[in-house]
Amino acid sequence: MSKIHYDREHHVKKATDVGDPQCFKGEAGPAKFKVGDRVRVRDLPSLFYSRTMVYARGAECTVAELVYESPPPEDEAWDNCDNPEWFYSVIFNQKDLWPEYPEAYASDTLETELSERWLELV
């Protein structure tokens, strides 16, 4: 049986002197959402690793910016860089995240970033 060779330095070679996430630029293909789109955070199962906060799941938000392309953290945690996605900066109204948020501060917001797989059009 031949020994399986796994290149543990593939990311280092790709990112050195380019930067991460810069090294994935142009790899995600066309973006599914555009600035201003109303989207909802999907409640996908997240076994092992995810960076989608529980408080954001199921909540509606607005796309504020397309920020960069990168493998999603669910893949990257396993050193898998094969499927980069667009990342979106999204803005929630605090009232949509915390039902008890005071009415007096109805204009307060929260901004965070999520990868494409976590969003769906409302």
Binding site: T52, Y68, P73, T109, L110, E111, T112, E113
Partner: peptide
Amino acid sequence: PEEVEVRVEDSNQKS
């Protein structure tokens, strides 16, 4: 004050 919108930036990814 109320008229100032507070925006929390949750830095959860690569920014």
